[in-house]
Design a protein around this nucleic acid. Structure first.
Lengths: 265, 265
DNA sequence: TTGCTCCTCACGTCACGTGAGGTGGC
DNA sequence: TTGCTCCTCACGTCACGTGAGGTGGC
């Protein structure tokens, strides 16, 4: 009859490395039931698998080992239930955090991909789907037109307004004419948060692209006005500019890629 | 015009501690745009918030900082899309892992709570809901009745059979009579996995409790047979025994609490 | 002088992982 | 003797956090 498991046998069955088992013994978190007095070999029992599995679960919930050890010492049903209740709350937060992170990188992926498929020199009329956003407070641009201070204001108020700054950030202008007058000075910044409660409606939009640093729209303004005159288009609602490619995927600032779109009347 | 942000200003807006910002500079992950040549003060710009937010998102996905740095150096749209695609897969795994952990502690909580509300000395007939489980292979008990080897077999085959050993483990006997013959030797071990594809049907069950170490059912067997005779009950299907309170919440092995239940014909 | 914000540098911490050097029975 | 499994002990690593001691302008 083999009653005891050596460290490597126990390691294989539990999936915990032997070095980790030695470490857990040293910090007095989890001990073998027995040590051979001659050889100092560690011996574990199969029912210890129950305990070690529970430790692994607690650890996977990011509970520090010290805390787990302290629980272990004074464990009783009421304490464990309290611990679990606390952890369920923490876990829900963690799940939300990860789902947010997922949503962020997914949204970014979509925009980067749109940028890769776009022809930056072409202006076109496109059917755009509804887009969810969260709009920041009205901007106040200084006379020199620097976007630094308005942007900082936006970032500072983000928390309060539940704006997640991890999503791609864009700027909105009151109208096409506002944009033409001051292309680098949007009325508002917004984050492209798919859970946002504000929406850019679906519909026919004039869509243009621009290569350049934030707020530098070069000849794109002229290209757009020329196009609207030629095709005799007029607009309704705000104009939106959002960076599909920014410093996150491009090293050269002159190659940042903005998408500019405004709804056709 | 204030163009630059000091380390503490940038820290407040970004939510990243200044010590972390210094560390990230040291490992060449994220640098201030400028250093004052006189005072060596660090200066950041608001648009660096975009980048640092992205770094935070990547880090929250458990990507090592070295990897993030390497991405940063050779970033381009295609690479970033590839990175995001890879991370979406990893993130899905992580989400599943956390949801599993949640499910495990939630299931444990339920059982511990049942144990707290139970009267261990009372035998009763109860309406039980359907329970999901995953049953392990048939056990082979040695002559001395030790459950160590059968239990190890169960643990070793768990991975292969998609049995999550983190859930509470129970034992099932072919019938009430089998249990009476050898209470400490279940035909199968099972895990109480709420996602399991096998079920214990809802219905009327005889429910008893037992205080004692694994497989030690003391006088509970006699108490149950006496009860069945007195009330003239007969059973159908297997008998299940599951530990509501085990070493996870109890230090004294003689106080482990098992629930034993078998369906009434 | 005091208070404030920044700086560097060294050391601590957490949860291990690695590797050197040694043991003991087949 | 060789191979194998175990041991201890020291040091490395990752991502910071902390604290000591110093600077420079109001």
């Amino acid at each position: 009859m083999k009653e005891y498991l050596t460290i490597n046998e126990f390691s294989k069955i539990s999936g915990i490395k032997s070095s980790t088992l030695r470490h857990w013994e040293e910090i007095e978190l989890f001990k073998p039931v027995k040590r051979d007095p001659e050889t100092n070999y560690r011996y574990y029992t199969p029912e210890q698998l129950i305990m070690i599995n529970f430790i692994v679960v607690l650890q996977s919930l990011n509970i520090p080992l010290k805390t787990i050890r302290d629980i272990d010492l004074k464990r009783n049903p009421e304490e464990i239930i309290k611990l679990i209740d606390d952890q369920e709350k923490i876990l829900n937060k963690e799940l939300r955090r990860l789902q947010d992170a997922y949503s962020v990188i997914h949204t970014r992926r979509e925009l980067i991909n749109q940028g890769l498929n776009a022809d930056p020199l072409n202006i076109s009329i496109e059917e755009l789907p509804e887009q969810h956003i969260i709009v920041g407070p009205k901007t106040k641009f200084p006379k020199d037109g620097s976007f630094y201070n308005p942007f900082i204001d936006f970032c500072k108020k983000a928390d309060e307004l539940h704006i997640n700054l991890n999503y791609p950030i864009g700027g909105s202008h009151g109208s096409f004419e506002d944009f033409v007058k001051a292309p680098g000075e949007p009325n508002n910044f917004f984050s492209k948060d798919p859970g946002g409660n504000q929406t850019i409606p679906a519909g026919k939009y004039l869509v243009a692209y621009n290569h350049g640093y934030y707020g530098n729209f070069n000849d794109t303004v002229k290209r757009m006005t020329d196009y609207t005159k030629k095709h005799n288009i007029s607009f309704t609602g705000p104009l939106y500019a959002i960076y599909l490619h920014d410093e996150i995927c491009i090293t050269d600032p002159t190659q940042y890629l903005a998408q500019i779109f405004v709804k056709i009347k």
